[in-house]
Each structure stands twice: as structure tokens, then as C-alpha cells.
Amino acid sequence: MSKKLSQQIAFWIFRILGVFVVGILLWILGFIIYNGIGVISFEFIFDAPRDGMLKGGIFPAIVGTFCLIVGSMIVAFPLGVMSAIYTNEYVRDGKISKFIRMMTNNLGSIPSIIFGLFGMALFVNTMSWGDSILAGSFTLGLLALPLVIRTTEEALRTVPDSLRVGSYALGASKLQTIRYVTLPAAFPNIVTGLILSVGRVSGETAPILFTVAAYFLPKLPSSVFDQVMALPYHLYVISTSGTNLEAARPMAYGTALVLITLVLIINFSASLIRKHFSKKLGGH
């Protein structure tokens, strides 16, 4: 076989595989949109469910998911960023950083249901927070933690050492260098990573199952110790345990569409934020 022909065959294989991946994504999106768009209405977005969750909307679940997104960000951001600063700026190539990195990776590969059980044992029972936004946020935050740490580390690693050294050369301490040079330079990528990780966990069901999610709770939460409905769990409930599953199907697709849209909006805003900051910093 000639070199040219084999190259062409290889290109075609790659091309087909590439199209295949995009195709799957579009297929899923198209399927959800096709089946779900019918129930989307003002009422569906802004009303509580009623009539055995066959009618009404999913507003409490949207609010609940929003609370959990914000809550888990608040938990994961400081912990994750500080931990990444420690491994990347302080103990860079030592045994400690290797150990921490290995543990972070292990933490990241724990199934999310285990996080759910752990969250129930620690936050719900031991800390006696009960099923609450607080317990759910901490559980989701812990789940997001390895992702936040990894993306923050990557963001810090893209900051060239010449900037750190330049800062030391002016008499700045390590802490000042991190605070005023390294972090600001890495900030757009850190925020992007954070948002992406939170977008990732916002669709998780298992961790919130035992820690916060309510089966049916049309009332909106009034404090962090309240339970809430959440989109992924609501989707699970109306797809598996309603009185009339067939009749609930459109509601389920509608919920799926809202959840997917929410995640896409989060991802999209992440890239907008990065663009905004990179421009402000003069592109680097």
C-alpha cells in the first residue's frame, strides 16, 4: 500500500471517529429537545409540581439545584484552590506533593454514591445537619474537590516561572508573589475550571440522594437547613416511581431538557468569563 493511500485511509478513520463523537452528542441533545420541548412553558419553569407531579412545573427543583450549585462552589473553591496552591507553589516536586496528588486522584475516582453515603454519615447524622442544603452542598463540594484541585493546579502551572522569579527579584515574599502575581495570572483558568467542575457535579444524583434531595416539596427553602428538590433527583423520581409513569414521561423529558440547558449555560458562561479576563489581562 502506498504511503499516500495509507495516510488517506488513516485520515478518514479519524474523521469518521470525530464525526461519530459529535454525532452522539447531537443525537442525545436532539432526542431530549425533541421529546422535552413540548412541555416547556412559563408554567413549567416557574410553577411547583402538582397532581402527583404530572402537572405543574419544576420551579422548586430548579431553585434547589441552583442553591446546591452555589453551595458546593462555596465549599469547593477555597479548599480546592488552597490545596492546589500548596501542592503547586509550596511543595512542588517533593514526596508530599506526589502523595497529595495521588490521593486527590483517588478521591476523584471514588463513585459518587460513596460520597452520598459518606455525606449522610458525616454531615446529616454526625454533624446533625439533617437532610439539608448545607449537607448536600458539602457532599457535592467534596465530590467537586478533586476536579477543582486538578484544574487549579493546571491553571497555576501555565503561569511561567519567569513571573514568579521576577516578583522575588523585587523583594516580594512567596505569599505576596502568589497573592499578587501567580493567582491573578492564573485566575481566568481557575474560574473556568471551577465552573466546569461545579457544572459537572450539578447533574449528580447519588450524592444528594441521602443528604438533601426531597421527593416532593413544592415549598421553596428558607434556610440552609431546609431540604430542597433538585433537578437530577426529580428526573429520577418521575421516571421511576410515579403512580403513572407513562403520563409523567413528557415531564421527565422537560426536566432533562432544563437540566441539560442549565449545564450548557454554566459551561458557556465559563468560556465567556475566561475570554473576558484574558482580554483584560492583555492576552497571555
Partner: peptide, 25 residues
Amino acid sequence: GMVFQKPNPFPKTIFENIAYGLRVN
């Protein structure tokens, strides 16, 4: 003080680049 082989300005404004050494002190 030190000046390096490759220019290494901070990703900040021209003003802030110069003010940096004063601020950290």
C-alpha cells in the same frame, strides 16, 4: 535588583508593573 534574559513583565498595566515593587514593600 535584577533584570532577566527574557523580558518578564507581569500581566498587569504598565503603571502597576512599576508600582508592584513598592506595593509589596
